[in-house]
Computed example of a mutant assay.
Amino acid sequence: MFKGILSPVVTILDENGNLDLPGNEMVINRLISQGINGLLFMGSIGEFFALSTAEKQEFISFAVKTVAKRVPVLIGTGGTVQAEVIALTRFAEQAGADGVVVISPYYFKLDPETIYRYYASLAQTTTLPIMLYNYPDRTAVDLGPELVLRLAREFKHIVAIKDTVDNISHTRRLIQAVKAERPDFCVLSGFDEYLIPNLMAGGDGILGGLTNVIPHVFFSLMTAYEAKDLTGVAAAQAKISVLMNLYDVSQPFVAAIKGAVVQMGLPVIPKVKEPAADVTSQQMQRIQQLLIQAEVL
């Protein structure tokens, strides 16, 4: 259901840290026009963790209306309060979203049975397609093949997983275990540079932050792969390899990705939600250097 190049969209803010809806509309239109296959709002790079419930609801309604069915709209509804996760998922469903992406609970290191109950309880309250979100660097818990297969077996509207693990073997094991019984189940890598390894292992694509910066490069990479154009694959992959260094420019990496979007010519400001710090002039210089090195600027 969710295949190809998907973008976890940055959330554009004004100088006061409030939602900049015209700026977000520009981001959305740019991504769609450059070939992105689906948009995730309020993922990690969309700063879901720093948005209030009111902001999330406003943004959901805005995003669904603005995208207007041009591509699938996914909403990040995960959190640590299960009732709030269920309520936000219901809101997204009523607003017309095409699916939700739900990170596993974080803070405590939960056992697989507890995580199963979390997702099962959510699945019983919605008919929306659900994408699991595995990000053990943030949750301290890994969604392994056995747990994912159990959920996929029991709930047909649990349809996908974003596997943000810096180990393609982990993603490959998920692909082999789950697709053996659910061939329709989509497995996406959360690391931009793993698009081709994901596809070659039988997966379905990526949901990665660099798509905000160079959507056209990812489009060309997918096109080259499908055409068996090795030269084209190598050229696009080389650009992505250089730009993976953007993730190390700021902590968290959201500020650097926003800075790179601005460097690519979008007339917005790279404001991030507190307590994270906005990108500095020195960091912006480093971002520009990387974009020039990758030959996209």
Rank of each mutant, 00 (worst) to 15 (best):
V148A: 01
N167I: 12
L174V: 12
V148H: 00
I175Q: 00
D163C: 01
G144H: 09
R138P: 10
I168Q: 07
E146K: 15
T139K: 04
Q176L: 11
N134F: 15
R172A: 07
L149T: 05
V178A: 02
K156Y: 08
S169C: 09
L128A: 10
L147N: 09
A140M: 15
I158E: 06
H157P: 09
Y135W: 11
R182K: 10
N167W: 04
R150G: 08
L174P: 01
P136C: 09
E154F: 07
V159P: 11
K162W: 06
H170T: 05
I130D: 03
V159H: 09
K179R: 10
A180L: 10
A152M: 04
V159Y: 08
S169V: 05
L174K: 01
P136I: 10
A180R: 15
V165A: 15
I161Q: 00
A140E: 10
E154M: 09
L147D: 07
F185W: 06
L174C: 04
R182I: 01
R182W: 07
H157S: 09
A180M: 12
I168V: 12
V159T: 12
H170W: 11
I175P: 00
E154T: 14
Q176V: 07
N134I: 06
V148E: 02
A177C: 12
R182L: 03
A140P: 05
A160P: 05
M131P: 08
M131T: 11
V178G: 03
E146I: 13
L147Y: 14
P183W: 00
A180W: 03
D184R: 12
P145A: 03
T139Q: 02
S169M: 07
L174Y: 01
H157W: 10
E181R: 07
A177H: 04
L149E: 04
L174S: 04
P129C: 12
C186G: 04
I161G: 01
E146P: 14
V178P: 02
I158M: 06
P145H: 00
A177P: 09
V165K: 05
R153N: 13
D163N: 02
D137A: 15
N167E: 14
N134R: 07
I130Y: 14
V141D: 10
S169G: 15
V141N: 12
I175G: 01
V178F: 00
E154H: 08
N134W: 11
P129A: 15
K162E: 08
P145L: 02
